[in-house]
C-alpha cells in the first residue's frame, strides 16, 4: 500500500515540478481572474444590485469565483494538459515502462489536478480578503475543500480524456458542460430564480452547484444541514468518476 502511494506520488511530483518550472505564468491567473470578475461584475454590474438574499453582490459572487477557478484549473489540467502528456508527449507510455502502473499514473494525474485547484484557491483567497468579500478565519476552509472539489472535476475531466478521439473533441465538454455550469450553478444569481424543473436539474447533474453551495456556506459562515447533502453528492460523484476514469483509461491504453 505504501509503495503504491509512493508510485502515485512520483507521478504527482512530476506534474508539480513541471508546474513550478513555469510558475510565473501559472501563478498569474488566480490573481487576475477574481480581480477582473470582482471589478466587472461585483463592483460594476453589482452597483445596480442592492443585495442578493441580504448579501452584498460582491460578497455573493466571491465564493462562486473560487469554485469556478477550482473547477477550471482541475478540469482543464486533466483534459487538455493530460491529453497532451498522454497523446503527444507519450509521457504515460514512458512511465508505464517502469514499475508504475497505468492506474497509478491516472490516479497521480487526477490528484495533481485537484492539487492545482488547491493552489488556485489558496492564491485567490488573499485577493478576496483584500476586497473584504471573504470572512476570516472561516474562509481558510475553502482551501482544503478545494481538494475534494478539484478531485471531482479532475475525475470527470479524465473520463472525457479517456474517451476523446482527438484534442479538438475536448471542446465539446468544454462548451456544453463547463460553460453552462459556469453560468447556471448559482454562481452569479441564486438558483431559486430558475424554474423549479431547471433548478432540480442543476442540483442533480451540475456538480458545480454543490461546490458553490458549500463554498458560499463557508465564506458567509452559514453552514446548514443541507450542506451535508452537497458534501455527500460530491463524495459519491468523486468516487464514481475517479474509478470510472481509471477503468476507461486502462481500456484506452492497454493494447
Amino acid at each position: 500500500m505504501l509503495e503504491r502511494i509512493r508510485r502515485v506520488g512520483s507521478v504527482w511530483q512530476r506534474d508539480l515540478e513541471a508546474f513550478l518550472r513555469t510558475y510565473r505564468v501559472n501563478f498569474i491567473p488566480p490573481f487576475i481572474e477574481p480581480l477582473l470578475y470582482l471589478l466587472a461584475l461585483g463592483f460594476g454590474l453589482g452597483t445596480y444590485i442592492e443585495a442578493v438574499d441580504g448579501v452584498p453582490y460582491p460578497v455573493f459572487i466571491a465564493p462562486a469565483l473560487v469554485s469556478i477557478s477550482v473547477m477550471n484549473s482541475a478540469f482543464y489540467e486533466c483534459t487538455y494538459s493530460s491529453f497532451v502528456r498522454m497523446y503527444y508527449q507519450k509521457t504515460f507510455d514512458a512511465i508505464i515502462a517502469t514499475p508504475v502502473s497505468i492506474g497509478e499514473v491516472i490516479a497521480g494525474e487526477m490528484i495533481w489536478g485537484a492539487t492545482r485547484g488547491v493552489i488556485y484557491a489558496g492564491l485567490m483567497l488573499p485577493v478576496l480578503i483584500l476586497f473584504g468579500v471573504a470572512t476570516m478565519p472561516s474562509s481558510l476552509l475553502l482551501i482544503p475543500f478545494a481538494f475534494l472539489a478539484g478531485l471531482l472535476f479532475a475525475g470527470i475531466a479524465m473520463c472525457f480524456t479517456a474517451i476523446t478521439p482527438s484534442i479538438e473533441t475536448l471542446n465539446y465538454p468544454s462548451f456544453l458542460f463547463i460553460t453552462p455550469m459556469f453560468l447556471f450553478s448559482g454562481t452569479f444569481f441564486p438558483l431559486d430564480l430558475l424554474p423549479e424543473v431547471v433548478r432540480y436539474f442543476a442540483l442533480a447533474v451540475l456538480p458545480l452547484t454543490h461546490v458553490v453551495e458549500i463554498n458560499r456556506a463557508i465564506t458567509l459562515e452559514a453552514v446548514s444541514a443541507a450542506n451535508l447533502l452537497n458534501l455527500a453528492w460530491i463524495a459519491v460523484a468523486t468516487a464514481v468518476f475517479c474509478s470510472l476514469a481509471i477503468r476507461l483509461m486502462k481500456r484506452r491504453l492497454v493494447v
Binding site: 509503495e3 512520483s10 512530476r14 515540478e17 508527449q89 507519450k90 514512458a94 514499475p99
Partner: peptide, 24 residues
C-alpha cells in the same frame, strides 16, 4: 522505445532524476 518519449518539460538531468523516481 522506438519513439522519443523523453519528458519535454524538463532538462536532460531532470529527466533522469524523474525517471529514477518512478523506480523508487
Amino acid at each position: 522505445p522506438q519513439e522519443n518519449n523523453l519528458d519535454p518539460d524538463f532538462t536532460a538531468y531532470r529527466n533522469l532524476l524523474i525517471y529514477s523516481r518512478y523506480f523508487g
